[in-house]
């Protein structure tokens, strides 16, 4: 049974417009149009731009309750005085 390709937008607008659409498409292609084009644009798989390294938090000094509520955290090492 040929499954009607209902996921992608109107095929004429999708990136792989010229692709013959009668065979069953793998999910990525159904969702992304022509995967080759998407890969050419560098969108998939997404490049890894950075590697986050977060220190394991140790319990130490803490703010007083009043100060903690006002500053938004109990731990001085997590407090950022900058408005944004």
């Amino acid at each position: 049974m040929r499954r009607k390709n209902t996921h992608t937008r109107d095929n004429s607008q999708s990136v792989g417009a010229g692709k013959e659409n009668n065979k069953e498409l793998p999910v990525e292609e159904m969702l992304w149009g022509d995967l080759a084009d998407i890969k050419a644009l560098g969108l998939y798989p997404p490049p890894r731009l950075a590697q986050a390294y977060v220190l394991w938090q140790k319990y130490g000094k803490t703010f007083s309750p009043a100060e903690a509520l006002e500053k938004g955290t109990l731990f001085p090492e997590l407090y950022s005085p900058y408005p944004y």
């Binding site: 938090q57 319990y59 903690a68 509520l69």
Partner: peptide
């Protein structure tokens, strides 16, 4: 204030 401190400690203790 006390409730906020309790929540903060709760979150800390979840991982420690």
């Amino acid at each position: 204030q006390l409730e906020f401190v309790a929540v903060e400690l709760n979150l800390f203790l979840d991982t420690h």
